[in-house]
């Protein structure tokens, strides 16, 4: 093949050259095969965006809520609204832990509407009424201890060897603050191994169903969704305030009445969640 060949000096050099002839193509192929993927940027899975018919020059309507459920439905309703399109180019809804809301968010009026508990908002910015007003109260609810095996009792005897499930979110009324307060009131001091903490209610309910915990606190409506054959309850608090939707003051004006009503209509998507709760949502706006 070649008219001129390089003659090797000795056998070792010859074998090395042959080895190189074999290994170099393989090494280059390996190098080719090891080219890394472009850095992947993952989007934010805790938010949802949709566009309305409105011109892109118009601002985006920003909503802050607590969880995913019905969030996209709510946003989609607003995006589909012709009335909405007159003022906004689209909707961005995000769901975050309760502690996410900061004083700066309130002072900057970062969100057009947000949901949270009254005492939290007041705690962040006592004069929050300068910036936000309540659009719609979500109903109070009754909170219960539930157990699959026997009627819960707040006594050291009963609780011995039992595990109670809580939420990791220490601002959660339902799964942390209320039950902890109830235990304190009953004078119960749980050991570390009697308490288990979960990142979200879904995990808490799953653990309860699997009997990884013996007792949890929840509203009856949620308990019914667990499809347990039987469960036992103990009332903790008959009237736990849930919270409210707060709306930016700028939007809470008479000439924005139609917009507000449209938002309230959009909030109807949450009806399945709230329907089991006896009280109706109280709103501060008169809408047709």
């Amino acid at each position: 093949m070649l008219s001129y060949r390089v003659v090797s000096a000795n056998r070792a050099v010859y074998l090395i050259c042959l080895g190189l002839a074999l290994s170099l193509p393989i090494a280059l192929s390996v190098w080719m095969a090891s080219r890394p993927l472009q850095a992947l940027s993952l989007s934010d899975y805790r938010s949802y965006q949709c566009s309305s018919q409105g011109a892109s020059t118009k601002p985006t309507f920003k909503i802050l809520t607590l969880f995913y459920n019905y969030a996209t439905d709510f946003a989609d309703y607003l995006c589909a609204s012709a009335l909405f399109a007159k003022s906004y180019s689209g909707v961005e809804i995000r769901w975050r832990p309760r502690a996410y809301l900061s004083p700066q968010h309130i002072l900057d009026e970062e969100f057009d509407i947000f949901w949270n508990r009254h005492h939290i908002v007041a705690g962040l910015v006592p004069e929050f009424s300068n910036y936000y007003r309540v659009l719609q109260q979500t109903p109070n609810y009754a909170l219960y201890w539930i157990s699959q095996d026997s009627t819960p009792q707040l006594s050291s005897n009963y609780l011995q060897g039992k595990v109670i499930g809580f939420s990791r979110d220490s601002q959660s009324q339902t799964h942390f603050l209320q039950p902890m307060a109830a235990l304190k009131q009953a004078g119960i001091n749980l050991n570390a191994d009697q308490k288990k903490f979960y990142t979200d209610p879904s995990a808490l309910y799953a653990a309860f169903k699997n009997r990884e915990v013996d007792m949890i606190s929840t509203a009856i409506s949620q308990a019914d969704n667990l499809n347990l054959s039987t469960y036992y309850t103990l009332l903790i608090n008959p009237e736990v305030p849930s919270g409210a939707w707060f709306i930016k003051n700028q939007l809470h004006h008479s000439h924005h009445r139609a917009l507000e009503c449209e938002i309230i209509r959009g909030l109807q998507v949450y009806a399945p969640l709230l329907a089991p709760l006896q009280q109706l949502s109280a709103q501060t706006v008169d809408c047709p």
């Binding site: 899975y45 969880f67 995913y68 459920n69 769901w95 975050r96 979200d200």
Partner: peptide
Amino acid sequence: KIIEAGINESFHDSLNDYLVKR
């Protein structure tokens, strides 16, 4: 990111579908 998306969620079913799509 997946854990954070499920924050405060009572039932994961529809969230799963949403996550898979995203």
